[in-house]
Simulated scan of single mutants.
Amino acid sequence: MGINIGICELEAKSASCAELKKEIHKVMLTDIKGFEAAAEFDEKVSLEEAARLFPDWEAFVKRNRLNAEADAVYLEKIKNDDDMAVLKPKAVRTATGWVNLSKLDATAKKKAVEASAPENRLTGWDLVEFDEMNKMCSECGLSWDKGRGCIGAFGPDNGALPEIAAKYGCPIIASVPESAKVKKRFSPEDGKKLLAEVDKLNAVLPDEGKMAVRRYGGPLERVGAVAKVSVDNNCGFFFF
């Protein structure tokens, strides 16, 4: 397993994605009670029922270009109008758990967001096309990973760099494995300290041998890039 490092991008005013990530469009809830009017539903027919309605199953799947491994037949996937007419009366309407915030007033929207977990929110950033997302990341001032974005690899979780850092009195890099476990957030002030640690370790790494230089020169370069972005943009960083 490897350890990654990222910028706390929402703390930086210059982040290309910040406003989009703050725009929450939908939330996934375990209980949609009270939000039914804005909830999204699936209309589906069980595989058993659909197979009974369409004995020539292969032909049915082929003409509608369905995934043969789906857990049910979802009406939104049906392309043949005649098949839709047969399936519609047998369809069961079930809540997906998603709630469309645009259909709620401000008070209800706030309640829905508070009832959702952060990872169960669909933001404006999630709706950006992949190529456009890559372009925005590459042009963003927080992009430290050679134009690939503000999140990248630190190194393996069993590497010796933290041990070397501890040996030379560099507490932030020494604590990386533990910090990654709890996703500890470091401040821009920590970024200044991290820059100093990187300078110190770059100076002493040759004393640890050529292998250490080859193995850990890259991670130190990446950590230094993150620290610089953190300081320059007054935002934190974290390992995970």
Rank of each mutant, 00 (worst) to 15 (best):
I5K: 05
G6Y: 00
L10S: 11
L10Y: 02
E11M: 06
E11G: 05
S14N: 05
S14H: 02
A15R: 00
L20R: 06
L20M: 07
K22M: 06
E23D: 14
I24V: 04
K26Q: 12
M28W: 15
L29M: 04
D31T: 12
D31H: 11
E36Y: 07
A39Q: 11
F41N: 04
F41T: 08
D42W: 08
E43S: 12
K44V: 03
K44A: 14
S46Y: 00
L47E: 01
E48V: 02
E49L: 01
P55G: 07
P55E: 03
D56H: 05
D56Q: 03
W57V: 00
A59P: 06
A59G: 05
N64F: 01
R65I: 14
E69V: 13
A70G: 10
L75D: 09
K77G: 12
K79G: 14
N80F: 04
D81Y: 12
D82T: 07
M84K: 14
A85G: 10
L87I: 01
L87D: 00
L87S: 01
P89Y: 00
K90I: 00
A91Y: 00
V92L: 12
T96V: 04
S102L: 13
K103T: 13
L104V: 11
K109P: 15
K111W: 11
A115T: 11
S116V: 08
A117C: 15
P118I: 10
L122V: 10
T123P: 10
L127H: 11
D131F: 15
M133S: 02
M136D: 02
C137S: 01
C137R: 00
E139P: 00
G141V: 00
L142E: 00
W144C: 03
G147C: 08
C150P: 13
C150M: 14
G155I: 06
D157K: 08
N158M: 06
A160M: 14
P162G: 13
I164W: 02
I164R: 06
A166Q: 12
K167G: 13
K167R: 11
Y168T: 11
G169K: 07
C170V: 06
P171H: 06
I172E: 02
V176K: 03
E178L: 11
S179Q: 11
P188Q: 09
D190E: 04
D190C: 07
K192E: 07
K193I: 06
A196K: 07
A196Q: 10
E197F: 03
V198G: 02
D199V: 10
D199C: 11
L201Y: 02
N202V: 01
L205Y: 03
L205Q: 04
P206T: 08
M211N: 15
M211Y: 15
R215N: 15
Y216P: 05
Y216V: 07
G218I: 13
E221L: 14
V223T: 01
G224H: 07
A227S: 01
K228M: 09
N233A: 01
C235M: 03
F238D: 10
F238G: 12
